[in-house]
Simulated scan of single mutants.
Amino acid sequence: MMMSLFWYYRPEHTQGGRNPSTQCENEIFASRHQDQNSVACIEDKCYVLTLAQYCRFCAFVKCRGEGLPESATRMVPPCVEYGTPAHHCVPTDINPNLVFVCRHVYDFRYGRILKNLQ
């Protein structure tokens, strides 16, 4: 069984390398590099979030670490009509090392970092 996917790159795998002053620890770059791979190569499931989603996730992890309730991270109470879609939800018991933020697109052919299309 095969799957078609778009690649993400870690900063250290780009021509510019990692820049700690401008990049988050768990930052990755989207790309337009598409490939087909066997589903047997899947090691684990990870979550790629926008910057706003990632900041909310980090606040949640911090509150959980300090023993505060999850609701302490919410500024506005959730509404059913405007809630986060199910495919954007990160499980509460997920390892934070499997959650990434993506703010930019990496053009692998030219070795450039582009603005994200969000």
Score class of each variant (00 low, 15 high):
M1E: 08
M1T: 10
M2G: 05
M2C: 09
M3C: 11
S4D: 11
S4M: 15
F6P: 05
F6S: 15
W7F: 12
W7E: 10
W7M: 15
W7D: 08
Y8D: 05
Y8M: 11
Y9P: 02
R10P: 03
P11F: 05
P11R: 10
E12M: 09
H13V: 07
T14Q: 02
T14K: 01
Q15Y: 07
Q15W: 07
Q15M: 10
Q15P: 02
G16N: 06
G17K: 00
P20C: 05
S21A: 15
S21Y: 09
S21V: 13
T22P: 00
T22L: 04
Q23M: 15
Q23P: 04
Q23A: 07
C24W: 12
E25C: 05
E25M: 10
E27Q: 03
E27C: 02
F29V: 05
A30S: 14
A30H: 12
A30F: 15
A30M: 14
R32N: 13
H33S: 11
D35L: 13
D35W: 13
D35S: 15
Q36K: 12
Q36W: 10
Q36A: 08
S38Y: 04
S38L: 06
S38H: 08
A40W: 10
A40G: 07
C41R: 15
C41P: 04
E43W: 14
D44C: 10
K45N: 09
K45W: 07
C46G: 14
V48Q: 01
T50I: 00
T50W: 04
L51V: 04
A52M: 06
Q53M: 00
Y54T: 02
Y54M: 05
R56S: 07
R56P: 04
R56T: 04
C58V: 11
C58F: 12
F60T: 14
V61Q: 04
V61M: 04
K62R: 13
K62Q: 08
K62Y: 11
C63G: 10
C63E: 11
G65Y: 01
E66T: 07
G67L: 04
G67N: 02
L68N: 09
L68S: 11
E70I: 10
S71I: 14
S71H: 12
T73N: 07
M75V: 08
V76Q: 06
P77E: 13
P78Q: 09
P78R: 14
P78T: 05
C79A: 13
C79Q: 14
V80H: 09
E81Y: 13
G83C: 00
T84C: 03
T84K: 06
P85N: 03
P85W: 03
H87V: 06
H87A: 07
H88K: 15
H88Y: 14
C89K: 13
V90W: 01
V90R: 02
D93G: 03
D93I: 02
D93L: 01
I94F: 00
I94A: 01
N95I: 08
N95W: 02
N95S: 13
N97W: 03
N97C: 09
L98W: 03
L98G: 05
V99W: 00
V99D: 01
F100N: 02
V101W: 03
V101D: 01
V101A: 02
V101K: 00
H104C: 07
V105T: 15
Y106T: 00
Y106I: 00
Y106A: 00
D107G: 06
F108I: 04
G111T: 01
G111N: 06
G111A: 03
R112H: 06
K115R: 14
K115S: 12
K115N: 05
K115D: 10
Q118D: 12
Q118R: 14
Q118K: 15
Q118T: 08
Q118M: 11
